[in-house]
Amino acid sequence: MGADESESNMKIALLGGKMGTVPKYALPEENWSEDLLLAQRVISTPSRLAIVGYLYANGPTLRATLIKELSLDTSLVGRNLDQLEDLGILIGDPPRGERVGRSTRWEVNKERYNRMAKALYDFLGIDLLQPGQEPSEG
């Protein structure tokens, strides 16, 4: 991939400082799919990535368990759970609006997760193996 091709994949925000102008972060292209934008939002912070990864691996879990197992701040976990639910990657049981006095069990929306993962892997050029499929030798 040449320099021109890589520049067309994303925009770079530049930050000036003592070391000169350096890339601060990559901005998504306007033509990114909803699923690729979701991946960017989920992996944008270590806490979101940890929460989604833990829930994907361990199944439905209470917020208190996430706080304990991930050693994260209570308010950070609460804020991220709400944001991830708003993004549609997490499902709370009971649903929002019915949570008065009840502990919420959080789980990954597997359909949304799988679409997000596929979009990210496609963008990165990584082939996903289907269950039981052998890697191709090349």
Results as ranks from 00 to 15, higher is better:
residue 29 E to I: 00
residue 130 Q to C: 12
residue 95 P to D: 11
residue 87 L to Q: 03
residue 11 K to H: 01
residue 22 V to Q: 15
residue 115 R to P: 04
residue 78 G to A: 06
residue 54 Y to P: 05
residue 60 P to A: 07
residue 36 L to H: 07
residue 108 V to R: 00
residue 40 Q to I: 12
residue 107 E to G: 11
residue 120 L to C: 09
residue 127 D to M: 13
residue 94 P to R: 02
residue 53 G to Q: 09
residue 64 A to D: 09
residue 84 L to C: 03
residue 23 P to T: 09
residue 21 T to R: 13
residue 49 L to K: 01
residue 46 P to S: 07
residue 110 K to D: 05
residue 115 R to G: 13
residue 47 S to N: 02
residue 12 I to M: 04
residue 26 A to M: 10
residue 107 E to F: 06
residue 3 A to L: 14
residue 127 D to V: 13
residue 41 R to P: 02
residue 39 A to S: 09
residue 104 T to A: 13
residue 132 G to N: 13
residue 4 D to E: 15
residue 115 R to Q: 10
residue 81 L to E: 13
residue 26 A to K: 10
residue 33 S to P: 01
residue 106 W to M: 02
residue 49 L to I: 04
residue 32 W to S: 03
residue 94 P to D: 03
residue 12 I to S: 03
residue 122 D to M: 11
residue 25 Y to N: 11
residue 2 G to N: 08
residue 83 Q to N: 11
residue 56 Y to T: 14
residue 7 E to W: 10
residue 87 L to G: 01
residue 10 M to R: 06
residue 128 L to N: 08
residue 138 G to L: 15
residue 7 E to F: 14
residue 95 P to L: 06
residue 81 L to V: 15
residue 25 Y to I: 07
residue 50 A to Q: 04
residue 82 D to V: 15
residue 125 G to I: 02
residue 55 L to H: 05
residue 110 K to L: 14
residue 46 P to G: 11
residue 51 I to C: 08
residue 92 G to W: 00
residue 38 L to N: 04
residue 56 Y to F: 07
residue 67 I to F: 02
residue 23 P to D: 12
residue 133 Q to K: 15
residue 15 L to G: 09
residue 56 Y to E: 07
residue 85 E to G: 07
residue 59 G to K: 00
residue 70 L to Y: 00
residue 34 E to F: 09
residue 60 P to G: 02
residue 109 N to A: 15
